[in-house]
Design a protein around this nucleic acid. Structure first.
Lengths: 338, 338
DNA sequence: AGGGTCTCCAAAAGCGCTTTGAAGTGGGCG
DNA sequence: CGCCCACTTCAAAGCGCTTTTGGAGACCCT
């Protein structure tokens, strides 16, 4: 069933049917009802490709993912948020998966009119080439995370992890910890850099002799957290407080602590970043975990919302929105035992 | 830059340029080179919508997600696999998010020619109405998981969780456990039913007096696993062996065990289903965990692969593919202490 | 009653691509 | 020398929709 057939059934022109269906004012209300009714009855659905071709609007947002590392749980969680909101904005989400190194071509293909109206960028690296590319391609986009080394103005959403980790670290120094460690995420990622910066700044600003500090890079898995914590805790003068880049690595750290008969909160203070993953919950640790909240799903929603606004032309300027990653106090921290 | 412009630059007809670009044989090799070269140089990308309209092929697969419960980590992990493989098959993945109850309309819209060539269904319920709907809409699809109460023949992939949990449970009875419990997933889900069936069958078949059994439903989170395990372990005559529906709930169970000074493997045997989530790893438990492997990402890949085959017309019959969920033995199980 | 203003609809022109059917080359052969 | 065929190329017709243009009626006002 297409427009032509439907209009023939109704004894109307395609124009009229199209207008009736799309809510244009210049059509008789009675006619409109009749058209809508017939459309429903015959199960008419407009052909998306044809509409796209005619209007130049795809009614879709998207992103290109890289096969190997691009599809982390973090990304997927963010994507879940994007998708959820996109549904409310009546947008499809299209994923274009590219091989490592073929990303640019994939973006060019997406930009090739007709697939998506806009894209989002997840966790751009420090000087991510994609930003310049997208501007050159004139494809509207919003980045989640800041490419700190890039001067260009571009729309973004960012969680202020730096401040969160600064506050968290300062809290620990203020509690009197003299040896604090950071179990950070992968080297080079801008969030990792933010954590590191906040951490170091807090230690530097701590009055008196700055505490001993130690930072390790790893991925965000339980295994990595466990390994890192083992290394730290088994060293000479182990840290009495630990900052973790994710709840997963915090889980690993907890395991390492328990294995060593250290009680979280009493023997070892623990703070982690909570990305809001389902299934894993800051409160369900052996001591409820103090966290810096940076909920990915919510961020994804917001990005989809702004993308929709950009497509509609409502949002125009390259606005950078920064969300504070709020510190949630729970029982996993305390003064060092001595 | 569109086809017309490009062909004008080249002084060729659109036909020839199109054929050259799409690898048709009836074009001079020299001309083809010239065309390819010019296309690259001018950054020509064919308009996807136009191509779709002309060919009737969307070169995309998709699915409709439901805002609230449809976007579990399980689904996202599966989706990651789909997307990865889709990239290799040169297919886009499109997500259409619908409000609860609006799913049918969303499928109809997707079927409205031009958006996707096929869809996948994740974890259909026992008698999922979507299956009939899709057959009626004539939209090719593959389901991951079986709608057991439906008689229709339809293409699917399934992990044989029932057998896996049967084997796991039997293993525990053979080790001599007299009280075994199952921390199952949400009630009504077909995987939950499979686990339950396998579990009960094994206990029934155990020689002599059948062991005491207990099954709890919950979600698949750490918190739920913890709570369930607490309830079980604090009851009279607590189980000496525990089956968990996910690594997350197993993590929770582990925490409950540790809290009670029970050693996994010695005081409490633990077996869990491992869906292959990154970040959480069966080996990184206080005792490496025996698991039934049912890797979601791999399944997603396979579904995308088969979907591609269906689109191309290579796969035609409603083939049901069943993967055994292999039991991986690790140190978390042993005979009961007595 | 005539002219002007609205309201509603039909026809047709794209949107950018693929694909059909036909035409233009040139070479080989009789 | 002319004919046929293989090899290339081209013009044009859609694909199904939106949107512009312009015309036909209906209605109102003077």
């Amino acid at each position: 069933m297409n427009l032509k057939e439907l209009s023939q059934i109704l004894n109307l022109s395609q124009t009229t049917v199209s207008r009736a269906l799309n809510g244009y004012p210049e059509v008789n209300e009675g006619t409109r009802q009749r058209v809508m009714q017939a459309a429903r009855q015959h199960g008419y659905e407009p052909n998306a490709a044809a509409r796209r071709l005619a209007t130049g609007k795809a009614n879709a947002i998207g992103c290109v993912t890289v096969a190997d590392d691009g599809m982390s749980p973090h990304f997927m969680e963010f994507l879940a948020g994007v998708n959820e909101q996109a549904g409310k904005e009546d947008l499809d989400v299209v994923l274009a998966s590219a091989e490592q190194g073929e990303e640019e071509a994939a973006y060019r293909r997406l930009a090739g009119h007709g697939r998506v109206d806009a894209v989002f960028l997840f966790a751009p690296s420090k000087s991510d080439p994609r930003i310049e590319l997208l501007q050159e391609l004139n494809l509207p986009f919003i980045a989640y995370g800041r490419a700190t080394a890039i001067d260009l103005e571009y729309p973004a959403l960012d969680a202020d992890i730096e401040t969160a980790f600064f506050n968290a670290s300062r809290l620990l120094t203020q509690l009197g910890h003299k040896s604090i460690a950071l179990l950070n995420g992968p080297k080079g990622l801008s969030t990792s850099l933010q954590r590191d910066a906040g951490f170091r700044r807090a230690l530097k600003e701590a009055g008196g002799k700055p505490p001993r500090d130690k930072a390790l890079n790893g991925d965000l898995s339980e295994r990595s957290g466990y390994k890192g914590a083992c290394r730290l805790l088994d060293a000479d003068s182990p840290p009495t407080a630990l900052l973790c880049a994710s709840l997963f690595s915090a889980k690993g750290a907890e395991r390492a602590a328990i294995e060593r008969d250290l009680t979280i909160g009493a023997d070892l203070s623990l703070i982690a970043q909570d990305d809001g993953f389902p299934y894993l919950d800051a409160e369900t640790f052996s001591a409820p975990l103090t966290t810096a909240r940076a909920p990915l799903r919510k961020a994804g929603k917001r990005v989809a919302e702004r993308l929709s606004a950009r497509i509609k032309g409502v949002e125009k300027e390259p606005k950078v929105e920064v969300w504070t990653a709020e510190l949630v106090m729970r029982a996993s921290i305390g003064p060092p035992k001595s």
